[in-house]
Amino acid sequence: MKLLVCVSKTPETTAKIAFTNDNTEFDSSGVQYIMNPYDEWYALVRALELKEAQGGSVTIIHVGPAANDTIIRKGLAIGADEAVRIDAEPPSALYVARQVAEYAKNENFDIVFLGKESIDYNGSEVGPMLAEMLGLPFVSHATRLEMEGNKAMIVADIDGGDAQLEVETPFVISAAKGLAEQRIPNMRGIMMAKRKPLKVVEPVEAEGLAVAVRFELPPEKGDVKLIDPENMDELVRLLHEEAKVI
């Protein structure tokens, strides 16, 4: 099977989130970046498991500048065979989808994997756009994927339950928690990754269409007010006048 895994870069989960330039840009100073966990732990690892069971190859693709090569190398260290980096700082999800589609359209991948969302902007946009551009079926939020020949049996998370789906290759699938288990790269994998091919591809022209105009942080949590259990009137007054919930 020929498998493609899309990986993106996100701030590390404990990073302090701030914005600069009058709240129009993310403040990246002092922020550590990681591979988006949904891409790494679930999408990539399930792709590797399928390759190990059935043979084939796993390619990872990333849209970003050379500074992101560490993230790509991690994917190779975990076990991907080769990597492609589209050399551009992506302005939007649509731009990313366009670049990946351009690369994937002539490569005949059986399955294109990505995480259900990136943990920074939580857009879940690239998957459906990419499937549309490639003219392929799209299954989102998969928690199980089993193959039988070219038929895939998929369990997907839906609000309040599961959906069981069947789809034939080729298709695009977004991975949710449960699809696989995180793999930690070992030292040998890290060294082997240095010798695996990382192809750098120039981007194609693509529009961003939607632009982020401004960001707002959620309001800071206020202090806790302790009210005497006997003083119900005060509790009701505060809930009504200050919290405005009743």
Partner: peptide, 17 residues
């Protein structure tokens, strides 16, 4: 280098788990 950072990250994750 990248491989030092990857090695450290891998062992840190392993230790946490």
């Amino acid at each position: 280098d990248d491989d030092h950072l990857l090695a450290r990250d891998a062992v840190r994750t392993w230790v946490k788990q």
